[in-house]
């Protein structure tokens, strides 16, 4: 680890001012950042500690949910309102990491968790995400865990998280506060596909801070399904988040997203289109799930994710519509 200074700001404004300086990073739970700094993947000179800001509340007011950035994964997962009105969120959180890490990990930090690509996390390899222009050995390398959707010829690293996949079907807005002021970004626009600039992973500007996650309405008929080799404490091979609005035997609205398969949390618009306005019968669900891997570009070792994604989406749809 490279030596760094630790700044403990008094308020949000001074935090943003401090973090706007070069070679700075925010630290919240530290569960990912400390791994990255110990491995010299990130070498910040200054860490700005968000703990003093105490932005850790969970507001469930009527139909809306607001999560502050330092709310702990374990606290959100266990919150009665979340369990009742947003089960997909609680399930996604509980499928993440381990209890100890969920006790430390925060909402904001979780959104910004970086890929588990082994080439990215070892400075002994080339990596376009870590050192732009150095190359991507994963494309022809060990890529079983890598993405099949949203890939580019520069990067196929998978977005690793679960929570952001759930937030995608809850139409969450991410509130960002920077020196120019406050703005809201829909979760679907928050993470970026790698394209030619895989080192730029989100729309965050230097110093900009996640100050809230807003979820506009309940999604009681929602579900998160995660498929993995190990029964716990592993990133998804494939996951599916589903929220359906079914009235009078008709799917009024369908929101479906996938994890473990995309370079960012992947919204499955074609699946949603195939569901909307239909009756949630077996044939409809199957036909919709078959659209899940539209546009997939598998590499040498991850082609199985195409089949697995369709089946995972189908199972999640069946669970929610049952």
């Amino acid at each position: 680890m490279q030596a760094f200074t630790l700044t403990r700001p008094a308020d949000t404004k001074s935090a943003i001012a401090a973090a706007s300086r070069p070679d700075s990073a925010y630290i919240a739970g530290g569960t990912d950042l400390l791994q990255l700094t110990k491995d010299h993947v990130e070498t910040p000179r200054q860490l700005v500690d968000l703990e003093p800001l105490a932005l850790s509340r969970i507001h469930a007011t009527g139909a809306r949910l607001r999560l502050e950035p330092l709310a702990r994964m374990s606290d959100v997962a266990a919150h009665p309102a979340v369990l009742r009105d947003w089960p997909v969120l609680s399930q996604a959180l509980l499928a993440s990491a381990s209890p100890q890490i969920r006790n430390m990990g925060t909402m904001g930090g979780n959104l910004l968790q970086r890929t588990r690509c082994g080439y990215f996390r070892d400075t002994g390899f080339a990596c376009n995400k870590r050192v732009p222009g150095s190359g991507c050995p994963a494309i022809n390398g060990e890529n079983r865990m890598h993405a099949i959707l949203g890939v580019s010829d520069r990067c196929i690293a998978t977005y690793p998280g679960d929570m952001a996949v759930a937030l995608n079907v809850l139409d969450a807005d991410i509130e960002l506060t920077g020196q120019p002021g406050v703005r809201k970004v829909p979760i679907g626009d928050f993470h970026r596909e790698p394209g030619d600039t895989p080192h730029i992973e989100t729309v965050l500007q230097p110093g900009e801070l996640i100050t809230g996650i807003d979820i506009p309405s309940p999604a009681r008929r929602s579900h998160y399904l995660k498929v993995r080799d190990r029964a716990s404490f592993e990133f998804a091979l494939v996951s599916a988040a589903v929220a359906l609005d079914i009235e009078d035997g008709t799917i009024r609205a369908a929101r479906v997203a996938a994890g473990g398969v995309g370079t960012k949390p992947w919204r499955l618009a074609q699946v949603e289109a195939a569901l909307t306005g239909k009756s949630p019968d077996a044939a409809t669900l199957k036909a919709a799930a078959d659209q899940a891997a539209a546009g997939a570009k598998p590499a040498k070792s991850n082609g199985f994710k195409i089949v697995l994604l369709k089946r995972t989406v189908l199972r999640a749809l069946q669970t929610v519509s049952a």
Binding site: R116, E142, R230
Partner: peptide, 19 residues
């Protein structure tokens, strides 16, 4: 890694052991 002969999962998050 076939190209470089370097271990890609040299950690206990990606080298899976039973929990």
């Amino acid at each position: 890694d076939g190209e470089t002969g370097r271990v890609v999962n040299a950690n206990v998050a990606e080298y899976l052991m039973p929990v």
